[in-house]
Amino acid sequence: MVRFHELNPAVIALWFFTVTGTAMFCSYPVICFLTLTAGVLLFLVRNGRNHLRTHLFFLILYVILTLANPLVSHNGKTVLFVMNDNPVTLEALLYGLNSATMLTGVLYMFRSFTQIMTSEKLLYITSLLSPKISLVLSMAVRYVPLFNRQGQKVSDTQKAMGLYADDNIIDDITGRMRIFSSVSTWALENGIVTADSMAARGFGTGRRTSLKRFSFTLTDTAFLIITVILASTVIVAAAQGSLEFDFYPEMSGIHPDHTGKAGLAAFLLLVLMPVFKETEALIKWKYSESKI
């Protein structure tokens, strides 16, 4: 009953990058449409009816992106009407619709990605690549809130000492700059303690290992293998040119060959995998709850 976001971060990241990558590099209309549909579905499955403003924002973006293209691009055979002596064509409109679908779909995917990938998971992925970079990032992640908090404290103290003598902007800005420089000194000075603490615990004595908080389970392996098989089918289809689509001067490639169809079917399954996973978990929970 593992839900999608509980999978190993590396598996999740791989899935997101293949899906968004395919959508961006092969902007075949069906693929763009599937990405958007699956992106919206995944977001809805995870968040329910909340985040209305997000949906509204994406809707407006979608409309603007769609309409922007026919206004600037005048390619295409089928003229719909003429505006300011410029022809507005059906092809340009459809091209705009397609890119808008692709972009909104990818943005929806990234919305879910940022929700799922907490800083800890991202650090896990970097630690797979390099334990050293991961440590530096981890220290940086820790320092940002620390720095802010100290800045607020210094600001309070200095205010009560009359640093901002008058209520004017110039005074405020110079005051803030002095606080920033003071907090920087503070960070450097106190960094010595951190360095000592690291040395005292054997930093730099040899090769580092790193503790992984996420294990690789059977579910992860299965998910990974399916992702790889489906993704390679799509990529092969795209590489062979079966998923090419031209809008200008007129639309071509509406009817793909067998490889193309196979690729599209694979992408359909690939893009819906997280939604399947979430629904499966949901149904299983319902079932096991009813037994309790």
Binding site: E120, L146, S197, T205, L211
Partner: peptide
């Protein structure tokens, strides 16, 4: 405050052992 190196409690606990290559 200043002795802590990493951002998560579990990572801080593991830090010394990681350095030793355990």
């Amino acid at each position: 405050e200043q002795q802590i190196v990493t951002d998560k409690v579990w990572h801080e606990l593991a830090f010394g052992l990681e350095n030793l290559g355990v």
